[in-house]
């Protein structure tokens, strides 16, 4: 039995999908409800149906709501341990490839992209790397492409950066203009910004490293499965997949295609096809 609210949420998501082609139908239901409740209150709507009415008749509202439905929280070098591990992976493993493709899936406003670009530059692989930064939110993509952040965020960025075994001064990557830090545009020279949806779109290229952080937590199981399937298909054998601190492949049906490379940082390595998982009994035979 679905409650009236559930039906309303269903209809709302269906409407948004059919009219604006944003498919949130398989996002985590509790997350969607929490967000919609917030939006409902903000727009002073009495019900999701009213919200639906407003949204279907006001395209500008959709853009706004999209910012609520896709969470754009990003710090540069967020969870420094993750980036420290990536630095190691980049310098030791990825450096053996003649060209390196990196996909930042759900790049939001670009903090993660610039963090990675900085790592690649510091490890001397900037010219070999090709970044793909994708998100479903056009506005976020634009901001990612701009690479401009408020000055008051720099402190936190730099704090994180300091824990990633830095090779340069963080301030060398940006210039300050009118209280905004403008990041070196050369960092995004090898980056392609694209609107790509993990819900509906498919793999577009072979990847060496995929970083998809704090995106899966907003998906329901079927969608998570799809997304991880995409990553699994896109990665080369022995390619790396990085997830957010609260995410893991633990329960995924694709978990068998990956080995845990760095458990605490949620970094996985895709296995070669021939290395199908074979449980091993460790033990001495006793009679």
């Amino acid at each position: 039995m679905s409650t009236r609210e559930d039906i309303e949420v269903d209809l709302f998501l269906e409407g948004v999908y059919r009219h604006y082609h944003y498919d949130f139908r398989n996002y985590s239901r509790t997350f969607i409800k929490r967000r919609l409740n917030l939006i409902k209150t903000l727009l002073q709507c009495e019900s999701f149906s009213m919200l639906q009415h407003q949204i279907l008749h006001d395209p500008h509202l959709m853009t706004k709501i999209l910012n609520y439905l896709t969470i754009q929280v990003g710090d540069m070098f967020r969870d420094p341990g993750y980036f420290l591990s990536l630095r190691h992976i980049i310098s030791s493993y990825l450096s053996t490839y003649s060209s390196i493709k990196v996909w930042i899936a759900g790049c939001g406003t670009g903090e993660e992209l610039y963090s990675l670009a900085i790592l690649f530059r510091e490890e001397g692989l900037e010219s070999r790397a090709q970044f793909f930064a994708t998100d479903i939110n056009f506005e976020a993509l634009k901001r990612a492409e701009a690479g401009i952040y408020a000055v008051d965020r720099l402190e936190s960025f730099e704090n994180n950066y300091r824990h990633t075994d830095p090779k340069h001064s963080f301030s060398s990557y940006y210039t300050i203009k009118n209280n905004y830090a403008v990041f070196d545009s050369a960092l995004k020279e090898n980056t392609v910004f694209y609107n790509h949806s993990l819900v509906s779109d498919s793999v577009f290229a072979e990847m060496h490293l995929i970083s998809c952080r704090n995106v899966l937590i907003y998906f329901d199981n079927s969608l998570q499965e799809r997304a991880i399937g995409l990553f699994s298909d896109a990665l080369i054998r022995k390619g790396f997949l990085g997830l957010g601190a609260k995410e893991s492949l633990y329960l995924s049906p694709h978990a068998g295609n990956f080995t845990e490379f760095q458990r605490k940082d949620r970094i996985y390595q895709k296995m070669a096809l021939q290395e199908l998982p074979l449980p091993r009994v460790r033990g001495h035979i006793k009679l």
Binding site: L278, P279, R280, V281, R282, G283, H284, I285, K286
Partner: peptide
């Protein structure tokens, strides 16, 4: 199989 260093693929 008790814990020891022998490994037999299973």
């Amino acid at each position: 199989f008790a814990a020891d260093d022998l490994e037999i693929p299973l």
